[in-house]
Computed example of a mutant assay.
Amino acid sequence: MKRKVLALLVPALLAMGTAHAAEIYNKDGNKLDLFGKVDARHTFSDNPGDDGDGTYIELGFKGETQISNDLTGYGMWNYKLMANSVESDNTSYNKLAFAGLKYGDYGSFDYGRNYGVIYDVEAWTDMLPVFGGDSYTYHDNYMIGRGNGMATYRNTDFFGLVEGWNFALQYQGNNEGEGQGNEGAGVGHNSLASQNGDGFGISTTYDFGMGFAASAAYSSADRTTAQANAGRGKSAYAGGERADAWAAGLKYDANNLYLAATFAETRNMTPYGSSDSRLGGGIADKTQNIEVVAQYQFDFGLRPSLAFLQSKAKDVWYDGRYFNKDLVKYADVGASWYLNKNFLTYVDYKINLLEEDDNFYRNNGIATDDILAVGMVYQF
């Protein structure tokens, strides 16, 4: 039963890259594990915003308590601290914080800051050493990545009747306050991008056996009044009363080989542009997104990786007209080398395929330069 409880946390654990944890307490039906990592990273790029030290630390815990024979309580907290700035100007934030209950084969219910159900699909291609998982996935952006006010029901093996068939139902409450985080979105100045109205989502995965699996997810939410008003008329900000997304994926994970492909479409939610308020940006009316990843795990610890990611926006308003434009497009070549279960080194090269001399990217503060990342990770 405890393995089933921990299985409910697998999407979040994969997203954090936390493969191991230190058990600090396990007695009388109560268990508490501590996990963390130090990622000593440096990136090289002609774009100043992507060049320099990127070192950070993550800490967290996951625990469970046996309430009765069938009822188990569980919780998780994950905190990230940047270590690449002076002590008087550091950045830290909560990535995850949720608690819930699981009752036998009837599933689990938890609430708090968690991953949206669309990420159940996206996690399959968010596997690169540094980059990846960013064609349309932004945190605090509806039920795509991490977000606040997530109420999630999960069921594994369909009430214990169909092995390998899992599904999730999710509700997200209204988040309209200014200054909400949007880590990774590149539009930190735009509070509209991190707002959301009430919404719901659903996801499902099925393991066919022999390494093959499929996944699908859908979400729909009200847009806030401020978002809808900003998109009225000819504007870089999407119109419409609702924000919708769907995603589907396939993967093969066996015999040391990992192959995955995901496709997704978003409407009235995906942000683009710079975090510098002096530059442009907006919210796309529609994006179509594809991510493909191939990796191989050698027995001596080396894991090379190849990937391609693209996000194409439809009917973007710019320079007095509407047109289609790639917001993200790059190939990625990388590798991780696991020296043991607690230590690894990595290199990851992002080959940016956006047009360097395009005024749309320049005027919206979208980088078109390649990035090389190297680093070492100690994790427990």
Rank of each mutant, 00 (worst) to 15 (best):
G281I: 01
G301W: 01
D276I: 10
N255D: 14
A228F: 09
T224E: 04
R267Y: 10
D285Y: 08
D299L: 13
G239D: 08
R303V: 14
P271D: 04
W246S: 09
A248K: 06
K312A: 02
V293N: 08
F308G: 04
P271S: 02
E291I: 00
Y218H: 13
K312Q: 11
D244A: 12
R267H: 10
M269P: 09
Q310E: 14
Y252K: 01
T262V: 11
Y258E: 02
F300Q: 08
G280I: 05
T287A: 05
D222P: 12
A264P: 04
L306G: 05
L306T: 01
D253M: 02
M269S: 14
Q295E: 12
T270Q: 12
A230E: 00
N255F: 13
L250T: 00
A313C: 09
Y252C: 00
L279G: 04
A226D: 13
D276S: 09
S275I: 09
V293G: 01
K286T: 10
P271Q: 00
A217S: 13
F298W: 09
L257Y: 11
A247D: 01
S275G: 10
L306W: 02
T287M: 03
L279Q: 07
Y258Q: 05
Q227P: 07
K314S: 13
T225A: 14
Y272I: 11
S220I: 15
G282V: 02
R267F: 09
E291H: 01
A254G: 08
K312S: 08
A245V: 14
S220P: 03
K312V: 03
Y258S: 01
A254Y: 14
K251C: 03
A228C: 10
K286Q: 14
N255S: 14
T225D: 15
D222Q: 15
N268H: 07
L257K: 10
K234E: 15
Y252L: 03
A260K: 00
G233E: 09
S220T: 15
G301F: 01
T266F: 04
A245G: 13
Q288K: 15
N229D: 15
A260G: 04
I283H: 01
R232D: 13
A243L: 09
A221C: 12
P304H: 06
Y272D: 05
Y258N: 08
L279C: 05
K234L: 15
A226N: 11
G273P: 00
A284P: 02
D253P: 02
A226T: 04
T266I: 07
A261D: 10
T287Y: 07
R278I: 09
R232W: 08
Y252V: 06
Y218G: 07
